[in-house]
Design a protein around this nucleic acid. Structure first.
Lengths: 256, 256
DNA sequence: ACAGAAAATGCTGCATACAGAATACAAAAG
DNA sequence: CTTTTGTATTCTGTATGCAGCATTTTCTGT
């Protein structure tokens, strides 16, 4: 990007002509203020993330973290300027998020951040419960020992954060563990559906800060979970995951 | 706009002069060949469907019905011309479908229709099974009598089509019934997830034409389903729905 | 002073223009 | 004849321009 703008301005557009000339683009071009095109973290060919992906996850984060509150209208011009991109890719990202269920498209008046009622949340948790119960059963059969060990590692780390009282890291590891267990099932469709719901719920969980007792209970449930997984005890794991989510509702119900 | 193109061509691009000049736009503008902006069928204010929605469902259909085979690259220019829309809304629709999982975005080279392996299909059916079992349980509690009656009506109609040997209508009613039962559960998130999977599987089912015996078996299962629903027998309905999908795999496994 | 109409404003929706990446093609070297 | 490298073409990615719809503001008549 860097010099592109310059190169651009040099030899182009006999057009010109623009009476008074078109105001020279003060544009920040691909400045992508806070948007990094991160250089791939995992295996595979080093390929820069496309702007689309970057925008999508950035907007997602803004919604989850409350920068864009439910009901907020996504103003294309303003938001685009703020992020340093033009309306076109921004609109594409918004459409993507709409399909994901995070925003709602209103004809002739753009997109608004979707607002979830308490019932919506409860319903999502109900489905999430069914999915995780299934994942638990499948994972006990399909998971590799190393896969299980990795989840155990995440769990230990999480407990560590819990003892340290680091809510944010705890929260993130918590999500990672659930996601990891679903991954262990080896069922891509299941992982997809789980991911969508997990994302929609992230905002809620992000807010809901349960008290010490409830928090402790959640950690205890996680202990059971890991134990059941290591024992490859289908019934037990499924049961604990289910119970965990029933309790999750208790923990967040006041937040919504 | 009409003449804008002309105005455009006049004073621009010393550039080039493109020898032979750019071929004059034969564009059909908003002709929207086969794409109707239909004037709303149901209740509520008469509001024309946005082009976005139209494009999305049109593309979906093209994929489901095989006009766009798995692995096919979605050529923006060509496809846009074919449909009579410019690339911008088309790209937005494609992004939407990508989020829905019907197409895959490949950086710098556009979108291709996603190809599902046999395992993918089996995995999807596994999840679908879990979701429908849940839906069955919920529906027995939540459904209204009229709601159940409507499903019964669909079912009777379907049996009618079955006897007439009308596969296409049978297929459509079949899908509608499953969707309707999920709706009866009153759980929007569940309906969402179910819808996504149902859509992804539509292409497969569209192809899979089982023989007479299997077809008969499927109808028999539907009979059981409706009976269980009318009796509001949670366990039974859930069980039948689950069995129905296990068998569904048998019916389509050779098609994938 | 107030209701309603008309004009003005702002924003979305769609189209088009431009630049860079990927691929296909062709010529040259081995 | 095969491989390689340079070049042309094609297509995607992004920006910009234009028109219509929504909404708000300002007039005008009672």
């Amino acid at each position: 990007m860097l010099e592109k703008g310059t190169a651009d301005s040099i030899g182009r557009h006999g057009n010109a002509a623009g009476p008074a000339g078109r105001k020279r683009r003060t544009r920040k071009m691909n400045e992508i203020t806070s948007l990094e095109r991160r250089p791939e973290g995992g295996p595979g060919p080093i390929r820069r993330t496309a702007l689309h992906d970057t925008l999508v996850s950035h907007l997602r984060d803004m919604i989850i973290e409350g920068d864009l509150a439910p009901g907020t209208r996504l103003h294309e011009g303003q938001l685009g300027e703020q992020l340093g991109v033009s309306r076109t890719p921004l609109r594409e990202a918004i459409k993507y998020l709409a399909s994901e269920g995070l925003v709602e498209l209103v004809p002739s008046r753009g997109a608004v951040v979707k607002r979830f009622s308490a019932k919506d949340v409860k319903d999502m948790l109900t489905v999430l419960q069914a999915l995780e119960e299934l994942a638990g059963k499948l994972a006990c059969d399909a998971a590799s020992d190393t896969g299980i060990a990795e989840v155990r590692a995440l769990h230990d780390e999480m407990v560590h954060r819990y003892r340290a009282g680091d809510r944010m890291q705890y929260y993130k590891l918590n999500q990672q563990i659930h996601t990891a267990i679903v991954q262990l099932s080896g069922n891509a469709a299941l992982a997809d559906m789980h991911g969508v719901l997990q994302t929609r719920l992230k905002r809620i969980r992000f807010i809901g800060h349960e008290g010490p007792e409830k928090w402790a209970a959640a950690v205890a449930e996680h202990e059971e979970m890991i134990a059941a997984l290591e024992a490859r005890d289908k019934a037990k794991l499924s049961e604990v995951l289910g119970r965990h989510l029933v309790n999750a509702w208790e923990r967040v119900r006041d937040s919504v």
